[in-house]
Simulated assay, not measured.
Amino acid sequence: MEEMAFVKIRVFVTVAMLLSSTLTGCHLESRNPPTSKTLQVSMDEVSKRSTITQNVTLGVGNTLKLQLGSNYSTPYRWAADAKIGDTGIMQQTSHQYVAPSTDALGAPGSENWTFTALKPGTTTISTNYSSFVGKNTPPVCQYSVIVTVQ
Rank of each mutant, 00 (worst) to 15 (best):
T137Y: 06
P138W: 06
T14M: 09
T124A: 03
G25D: 02
L58A: 04
D81W: 05
H95P: 05
T124R: 10
P138F: 03
I89N: 00
K48S: 10
L39N: 02
S36C: 13
E2Q: 11
G61K: 06
Y72F: 11
A104H: 12
S131D: 11
V7M: 08
V13I: 13
V147H: 03
G61W: 06
T22G: 03
Q96T: 10
T137H: 11
G85R: 04
T38Y: 08
I146N: 12
K65C: 09
C141P: 06
N112A: 07
T122E: 15
T63A: 07
M4T: 09
T124H: 00
P138G: 07
T63V: 14
P75M: 09
I125L: 06
D103W: 13
G85L: 03
G109M: 03
G69N: 10
A117R: 03
S30F: 09
E2S: 12
I9A: 15
K48I: 00
M4S: 10
K48N: 13
T38M: 10
M43C: 10
S70A: 13
E3L: 14
S130H: 15
P75Q: 11
S21Q: 03
N112V: 13
I84Q: 00
W78D: 02
G69Y: 05
C26Q: 09
G106W: 13
D86M: 06
P75S: 14
Y72P: 01
F132K: 13
W78N: 01
L64W: 06
N112R: 12
T51A: 10
L66G: 04
V41Y: 01
S42Q: 02
S110R: 10
F6D: 15
V149C: 05
K8M: 07
A5G: 07
V133Y: 14
K119T: 14
S47F: 10
F132Y: 15
L118I: 13
Q40M: 13
M43L: 11
M17G: 01
Q142I: 12
E3A: 12
T14V: 13
R49N: 15
S30E: 06
M17V: 08
L58K: 02
D86K: 05
S131V: 08
G59E: 10
Q40C: 14
S144P: 00
P139I: 03
T116Q: 13
E29R: 08
Y129I: 01
Y76S: 01
V15C: 00
E111W: 11
G109A: 08
A117L: 07
Y72T: 15
S21N: 00
K48W: 05
N71I: 09
V133K: 15
R10H: 05
A107I: 01
T123Q: 04
V56I: 14
V41N: 01
V46W: 05
S110Y: 05
K135S: 14
T148P: 00
I52Y: 06
H95V: 15
D86W: 06
T51L: 12
I146C: 01
M90G: 09
F115D: 00
V140F: 01
V11A: 02
Q92Y: 00
S36E: 15
L23P: 00
I9Y: 10
S126M: 12
P139G: 00
A80P: 02
K83A: 12
S42T: 15
S42Y: 05
M43S: 13
